[in-house]
């Protein structure tokens, strides 16, 4: 197979195959640094969760598994539609690329809409870190016993099961991590609009569809981040209550 005269082949590449592998390698290098970027947030999360496990569990119970689970399904479904968009690009089916990307945009918007509902609920309940943060600690004997974690807790003064400040740390992580994730999705939706525009201009062919393929990698990566965020933020200590 001779690709040497393809109009899609840039002069500094040997073949379309090499060109394709180079672009995909470059995208993976970007994703590797994205792993480190989100990894820093996850690392901080692990440190503070180890320090205040009860506070993190109590704070996690403030989040809605219904909304979080719904969004997980929406995002994984959007990964499927993007995978099908890339497949359509491989087959050179322009209208299908556009169709699957429009579906992905809709799913992304649904995800962000749910996120808005969740954020505004946190705002109303004064769970956004800052001067308006207000979490009422529960004073219960059981919780006291658990939080001190000792047998000689009887002669202690009643102490809150968790300290509001520690709950606030959880919400700082919640907003930083889900916010950064949502920002990636907003950028992704912008990229999709650009790629749809390119598709309408007939820029893609079975031998060249790098923007679609690389965007697919980006969107799947954003999905992977959520796959970790969902259990680590929404599902902590659910077996306790």
């Amino acid at each position: 197979m001779s690709n040497s005269h393809s109009p899609h082949l840039h002069h500094h590449f040997h073949s379309l195959e090499q060109q394709r592998q180079a672009s995909s390698l470059g995208m993976w290098v970007f994703i590797a640094q994205e792993i480190m970027f989100f990894g820093g947030l996850f690392c901080g999360y692990v440190v503070y969760r180890n320090m205040y496990p009860e506070a993190f569990a109590v704070a996690s119970h403030q989040l809605s598994i219904g909304w979080g689970g719904f969004n997980t399904v929406v995002l994984i479904f959007s990964s499927l539609t993007v995978a099908l968009a890339v497949r359509s690009a491989q087959l050179g089916k322009k209208n299908q690329i556009i169709g699957w990307l429009v579906a992905t945009i809709l799913l992304g918007v649904i995800f962000l809409g749910v996120k808005c509902i969740e954020y505004s609920a946190k705002w109303e309940h004064h769970l956004v870190p800052g001067i308006h943060f207000n979490y009422e600690p529960h004073y219960t004997d059981d919780a006291l016993h658990e939080s001190t974690g000792s047998e000689h807790g009887t002669d202690h003064h009643p102490a809150p099961a968790v300290y509001p400040g520690h709950v606030q740390i959880f919400f700082a992580f919640y907003f930083a991590m889900t916010g950064m994730h949502a920002l990636h999705m907003i950028i992704g939706i912008g990229l999709m609009i650009w790629i749809i525009w390119l598709a309408t201009k007939d820029r893609f062919a079975p031998e060249y569809y790098a923007p679609v393929e690389l965007f697919g990698l980006y969107w799947h990566f954003v999905d992977v981040i959520w796959i970790f965020l969902f259990p680590l933020l929404y599902l902590i200590g659910r077996h306790v209550t």
């Binding site: 390698l25 290098v29 990698l217």
Partner: peptide
């Protein structure tokens, strides 16, 4: 599963897989 099938590591060049693994 996402990386292997959706992100095409299954059919990627070895060097691409190495970079993906390096991130982890």
């Amino acid at each position: 599963i996402v990386a292997w099938y959706f992100m095409h590591l299954k059919s990627s060049a070895k060097i691409t897989r190495v970079v993906a693994l390096a991130g982890v």
